[in-house]
Design a protein around this nucleic acid. Sequence first.
DNA 1: AAATAGGTGGGGAAAAGTGGGGAAAATAAA
DNA 2: TTTATTTTCCCCACTTTTCCCCACCTATTT
Lengths: 143, 143
Amino acid sequence: MFIGEYSHNLDEKGRLAIPKKFRLDLSKGSVVTKGLDNCLFLYTQEEWDKLAQKLANLPFAQSNTRAFARLMLAGAMDVLIDKQGRVMLPEYLRTFAGLKKNVVVAGLYNRLELWDTEKWEEYKNKTEKESNEIAEQMADLGV
Amino acid sequence: MFIGEYSHNLDEKGRLAIPKKFRLDLSKGSVVTKGLDNCLFLYTQEEWDKLAQKLANLPFAQSNTRAFARLMLAGAMDVLIDKQGRVMLPEYLRTFAGLKKNVVVAGLYNRLELWDTEKWEEYKNKTEKESNEIAEQMADLGV
DNA sequence: AAATAGGTGGGGAAAAGTGGGGAAAATAAA
DNA sequence: TTTATTTTCCCCACTTTTCCCCACCTATTT
């Protein structure tokens, strides 16, 4: 599954190279959507189907679950990997995540996250300082 | 399993030699990730899979579990041992752990830890002095 | 002091990432 | 329906990175 942090460039046509080792899993089809903390989530078809199922079953009586489902479902777009191993990100998603040229591709096991490099560094600085405290909270999960 | 303390040098290409006796266990694949106290953890594939499984199942709706998963999963990288018994550490991990030239490789039974030598000495000095007090606190863990 | 084994450094081939031209397809306009 | 314009995607060429391999160094053993 996906792990690691990679740095790639968006070209003028809005294409982003996917690290070689992730391509096979994504080659059967994949879905990008709006993620949390201002990044994009990229799923394999299979993982997306599971997630979409969960989202569709959220009770729509609550306004915040409606908002969340709209964000992730209406925001989604299926993408294909071209022969050079790149995906074309639609303009509205690039805008949403504030992607310019430098993009970080991060492996989060069952999804990839796409971040503007500056935002990613900022986020990392913030969370690495708190990492010991966060780790303490995770202790009860057996980690 | 892994025990002992070794001192090795990072070369200009970011490669680090692994002590001979650890190589066989790591040769089937291994994963480095961000550890606590500013060092890196190096796991065998098998050990890593156990850990990753726990991390992957954390719900992404909570911000602190997202942060932790990003730290540990996006922070991880699978590495291969080359024919000379070295691993290539990606730049972002070297930066995280402040690795310069001198690196300590320490065996912690089911993982290796990689430390900048200065930080390691500093940490050792501090904890060796406090070791008796720390030991007292360990009593209730059955040690 | 020679021999061996583990560790270190660097050159070069191969692979991965990047940028851009142009054909094909899709969409919009006439 | 035809023409024009835009978008998508395939392909080629260039650059950068990775990794394989050879050679050398250093320390330990005989």
